[in-house]
């Protein structure tokens, strides 16, 4: 495997050693290395990003408004300074998950608080990994609207991909291709439900499908909970549990609507990330802290149930 040892500073290596011997759970998250690489890249991106992008001074279309011309010039940076850095961050999250997968960490002695603590650390790692993309956006985009669009994409990625913070607990239960197929089959299943509701009951997407999928989600959670509680789960039950974990961030905004946090379903989903109000406290409290806490509880329950041998068919 690739050797990164040459670029690691000595004091961090010593800190890493200290964490390994005194706080192994913190060491396993690799947070000091994630912080080291991310903050270094963030600094580089923030300081130098502006030297490479298009500057909105050029007038491409003399007939159009000057402000709109500036917008069009700056918009040319969306791929190189918005989408590609986000894609690279996603690859880095993938690598971080791979490192977690390799560790074969035993979480069985942790209590709920310990689980929540590790989840918070994992979340911090994911935020740090996304940070360079944010730094580059702040540096490269001169038009506020474009900057906000990139920040919105980062927020969507963080909110909907929150399950990455709990995947290290269960990732060893599945092969990679199983995860890929579970995601695919899950989406196809949701579309089939939507089509079925429309054809059989005449319910259109706007009025009832999201609610039906939400109900379906909790039916799955109930089945999984009973199966795990009775220790009668199979590999299919585990896959269903994985599907619920991955799709929880999609189902949760509907719960916010039901709890009157938002006045309607559309608003609840739009507030996952909105160009005009980004990284708000309400979003942090509802879509991040509450979701992470619920994840913590469910994964704790699931992990402990998985310690018992599986029922064979």
């Amino acid at each position: 495997m690739m050797n990164f040892d040459l670029i690691k500073p000595e004091f961090l290596k010593r800190a890493d050693q200290y964490l390994l011997t005194h706080y192994p759970m913190i060491w396993q998250t690799r947070i000091i290395w994630v912080a080291f690489y991310s903050l270094s890249l963030f600094t580089l991106a923030y300081l130098f990003g502006d030297y490479f992008d298009h500057e909105p001074g050029e007038i491409l279309y003399p007939d159009l408004d000057v402000g709109y011309n500036h917008y069009l010039v700056d918009r040319q940076d969306r791929l190189a300074f918005g989408q590609i850095p986000l894609f690279l961050s996603a690859l880095a999250v993938f690598y971080w998950l791979y490192i977690q997968y390799q560790h074969k960490i035993d979480y069985s002695k942790l209590n709920v608080a310990g689980f929540l603590g590790v989840i918070a650390l994992n979340f911090a790692c994911i935020v740090l990994i996304l940070l360079p993309a944010v730094g580059l956006a702040f540096s490269a985009f001169d038009i506020t609207r474009l900057l906000n669009e990139v920040l919105r994409d980062v927020q969507i990625t963080l909110t909907l991909g929150l399950s990455a913070a709990v995947l290290p607990f269960i990732i060893r239960e599945f092969s990679l291709i199983e995860i890929v197929l579970v995601v695919f089959a899950g989406f196809v299943y949701c579309f089939l439900i939507a089509i079925g509701l429309r054809l059989l009951l005449g319910i259109n997407f706007n009025s009832g499908v999201t609610g039906a999928l939400f109900l379906n989600f909790w039916v799955f959670v109930a089945i999984i909970s009973v199966r795990f509680y009775q220790k009668t789960y199979t590999q299919q039950t585990k896959r269903l549990a994985l599907l619920c974990l991955l799709s929880f961030t999609l189902a949760f905004p509907y719960a916010l609507y039901l709890l009157d946090v938002y006045p309607n379903v559309n608003r609840a989903y739009r507030e996952i990330a909105h160009r005009h109000h980004i990284f708000t406290l309400k979003w942090l409290a509802a879509n991040i802290f509450v979701v992470l806490s619920m994840y913590g509880m469910f994964v704790y329950f699931m992990y402990r149930s998985l310690l018992f041998p599986i029922k064979r068919k």
Partner: peptide, 14 residues
């Protein structure tokens, strides 16, 4: 390995 491909793509961009 899969992770090698991921890292190669990542470092290619960097």
């Amino acid at each position: 390995k899969l992770i090698e491909m991921v890292l190669t793509a990542f470092f290619g961009f960097i």
